[in-house]
Design a protein around this nucleic acid. Structure first.
Lengths: 146, 146
DNA sequence: CAGAGGTCGCTAGCCGGGAAATGACTTGAC
DNA sequence: GTCAAGTCATTTCCCGGCTAGCGACCTCTG
């Protein structure tokens, strides 16, 4: 068994548990913060664009956006020029969450990296970036496995 | 916004995509491999024990085990002495997957760590272990956030 | 022995994920 | 102008995740 994958899987599930609980404290489901984060940076994006940024598929974002719309965090409007496109816009409630969620994320970072010195945390980020790039390449160019 | 959390989230989703595709190639859903891995190590465990090992909740394992039972990978039996307990046992098909899945995990590890030297990979595992321990502690002792 | 407290699995409902399929729309070639 | 190809969102279905709640069973205490 791959020890790396064991460690990675365990860390992933635990980190997910922490971030899930944190998002719930603000009335969000884990994942919705990614939609909001994308719109805080650039309001009015399409589901497809957000999906690409968040490394998920469009149906996932469409479904989330519908729930977030029902919850009053975003509104959905058709694009002016291309009737295929929907654009998501923040409501006041959606914008108001920016401070609390960003603070929460900083707080989570501090908790997760407690006991690591600055260089260790920086190295972790660099290596995780490399792992992410490797995974991205793998998804883009799957092994033909016969 | 926490750059660490951005990097971590992105890596997590991409790694999940790679492992999900790999498990599907063997007829598994991502997560079922964790149940199998637990039983490969110690056949006959209870859903609660597997859930604790896998860092998920018991209902998750119960639901997965029911599907895996229907798929012929495990069988469910009541414990001889304590009628509250169910124990999951591997079928031949479940046991036969050990080689392919373990090889697959080693292959994924190689892909994800490509370009990292041995010391970097080792350091990553050590730091991820620390992150996991921190997250675990956080889940066990939640911040009272009023 | 009786009952309270604890343990276990289970169900139901909600959620974010993906794959597959579909309809609506836009663009480009002829 | 027409039509094929491409693009986009949407829906449906299945899945693994969680919380909340419940019943069945076991253990411990008085």
């Amino acid at each position: 068994m791959s020890e790396f994958m064991d460690v990675y899987t365990r860390a992933s599930k635990l980190v997910r548990g922490v971030t899930d609980a944190a998002m719930r404290r603000h009335g969000l489901h884990l994942g919705q913060n990614l939609v909001l984060a994308a719109l805080w940076e650039a309001d009015g994006q399409t589901p497809g664009a957000i999906a690409a940024t968040a490394e998920v598929t469009t149906p996932t974002i469409v479904k989330m956006a519908n729930r977030m719309s029902a919850a009053g965090l975003v509104v959905r409007r058709r694009d002016d020029r291309d009737n295929r496109l929907v654009r998501l816009y923040l409501t006041d409630a959606g914008r108001a969450l920016r401070g609390p969620i960003e603070n929460e994320m900083k707080s989570i970072e501090a908790q997760l990296t407690a006991g690591l010195d600055e260089s260790e945390a920086k190295a972790l980020m660099a290596v995780l970036g490399r792992v992410a790039d490797n995974a991205r390449a793998q998804l883009a160019d799957p092994v033909i496995d016969c």
